[in-house]
Design a protein around this nucleic acid. Structure first.
Lengths: 342, 342
DNA sequence: CACGTCGATGTAATCGATTCCAGGCGCGAT
DNA sequence: ATCGCGCCTGGAATCGATTACATCGACGTG
């Protein structure tokens, strides 16, 4: 590949001048500029980003470490992150942690080695020393969706509390009283918070959340299936299962169907995280929708603010309930919200 | 951040020795080695990948440019690509082209500027001058899923011809005679091939594929909806709609449902690309499944072979038909294949 | 004893950019 | 005519690594 020296030789100027033209520095004569640009054209020159980064100490790259790329929620998040980053002149390198702390660490280390300008993380766990060191060392960082308590890093996330209350109201209104939850890993904030919000919402109706109705999942489909099977084996199975993410809801659906039971007739199902496919499942699934695109964009803006020396603040956006048919018929309401989705 | 110089100073040796220790070069005394490693430890030193890349002219990074991250097929592909690359010591930077040639070019340019070691592309179109230049300039490249005819680059893809024949046999056996297809963009190989395979398979049964039954889609859900509406408006609508990818099938499902019609009673539906959710839609959708994971891994191996100076060959793997209920009941067969999926 | 060999180490060049600094030139003011 | 000031320009340092080459000492051998 042609280097800046080749361009300088071709244009008959020094490398300094070429560099000045390329970074449109003011003091370059019109003549030099045109000669350089012509040389760039004929040589098909493209600046070497690696060399530039070494010198300027900026890569114009953000790292995004997410917990699971196969989860449509994170895919959508990744997409909006990349979009906003591109608009602001940054590229994104995605690391998929697969809900595994060791893989998460691998990616964080890799990204740090590559001297990314900032890091967007949705932590799988309570935070490895590596990540905490990075924060302490001053690496610009922003948490998205999940976060690590006690670490001084902006957090961009959705607040599901109101939506969970709406969900419980909806369930209660349909006559359900025995409500169970498939929780996410206790090491994650979202894993804990969703259970707490659910418990509080139940309390408002004088309902309890017994241990038997609190299954421990890991945000993956298989755990949803396993936990649901446990629920169905209980002497008094719950009337509703609320899955703390969309993949576990999928697993729950599998488990229910494998027993030859039907949703919502035999057992109702609801999920945190709404995804396109929930409109098309049998039956369409009632879910709590996060403003995923907005979260991704806000997270990037916060991170870039930090990188470029501005404050960079935390953002919390509301999630909302989307009622479909998986919790039982509500003749007046269902057709409307269903149609609004299509 | 600490640099190699700091380590050298701390250990009381030269930078050359530090570098030798880090790259485990044979001629370093045991004593120097331990001193260097200790210094690395106390300083928390990590080599700067940017500097290293500049010097060695390798980034140990692959670029992956895919057509649409929101498409589960490509998400899965991306995941397996990253996995295999990691196993071989490479990182992956993903660029999402969103089926837009201009975005595809943006990412290719960006990746080239970053001096990635090799490029994995699933082209959205016939190939921009930029990409063709890169091939000519000797950038290691491999096409995956889709390719560009006439370009000398290994291709890793699935062959759907047999599976499409199986599909048509299945449909014919169920009594369907008026079969329609929602095609992908004519600029893509997969867009063209799937139509051709379908047409040939129909011919084997003495059936035609009239223009009215060939809708032009763009691999996005919205086009599937639009085309399907067109089909339903025909004086004699088709009995089956075969969507050339999973998103267009989703759009088709929307369109059918919006009319208050039912699958498969009013119209049958099948799709190219199988995804997890197809088991759970109403009804479960008959699809042609690609060995996505194998494709991703094979593509990475071919690319890394090229990068490291070995041949790097094209690979074609067979796709297979997965029968579910969306084309009509086949009492003997359906329960079995359906159960095998769960 | 002299010489060649080999292992361990350091010095310095290099990768391809950016940028500080100094110098040359033209021009207006004194 | 001289001076000073801007504008352009080039030389050279620099970023943090890798690596060719030189050096030096120890050791074995003829």
């Amino acid at each position: 590949m042609a280097s800046i020296k080749d361009v300088a030789a071709e244009a008959g100027v020094s490398v300094a001048t070429v560099s000045r033209v390329l970074n449109d520095h003011p003091s370059v004569s019109a003549e030099a500029r045109t000669r350089v640009l012509a040389a760039v054209e004929t040589l098909g020159y493209r600046p070497n980003a690696v060399a530039r980064s070494l010198r300027t100490d900026q890569t114009h790259t953000l790292g995004l470490v997410i917990s699971d790329v196969l989860n449509p929620y994170f895919t959508e998040l990744a997409r909006s992150v990349e979009e906003e980053a591109r608009a602001l002149g940054y590229s994104v390198i995605i690391g998929n942690a697969d809900e595994r702390p060791d893989l998460q660490d691998h990616h964080v280390r890799n990204l740090l080695d590559r001297r990314i300008d900032g890091l967007l993380v949705s932590p799988t766990d309570g935070g490895s020393p590596l990540m905490l060191d990075a924060v302490r060392a001053g690496t610009p960082m922003v948490f998205v969706d999940r976060w690590i308590p006690g670490v001084d890093v902006p957090v961009v996330r959705a607040d599901g509390q109101t939506a969970v209350r709406d969900l419980v109201a909806h369930l209660h209104g349909l006559g359900h009283r025995r409500l169970a939850i498939i929780a996410g890993p206790a090491a994650t904030t979202t894993g804990r918070e969703r259970v707490e919000a659910f418990r509080e919402a139940l309390a408002a109706y004088g309902l309890e959340l017994p241990d038997a109705y609190t299954g421990q999942g890991d945000f993956q489909a298989e755990s949803g299936r396993r936990v649901t099977e446990g629920f169905l084996d209980l002497p008094e199975p719950p009337e509703v299962v609320f899955a703390a993410d969309n993949l576990m809801a999928l697993g729950a659906l599998d488990a229910v169907r494998a027993r030859g039971l039907r949703v919502p007739d035999d057992i109702a199902l609801a999920a945190f995280d709404d995804i396109r496919w929930f409109v098309h499942t049998d039956p369409p699934i009632t879910a709590i929708a996060q403003p995923t695109g907005d979260l991704g964009r806000a997270a990037v803006r916060a991170l870039v603010d930090r990188i470029e020396g501005r404050p960079g603040e935390s953002v919390t956006l509301p999630a909302r309930l989307v009622v479909r048919r998986s919790c039982g018929e509500n003749p007046a309401e269902t057709p409307v919200t269903n149609r609004s989705q299509s």
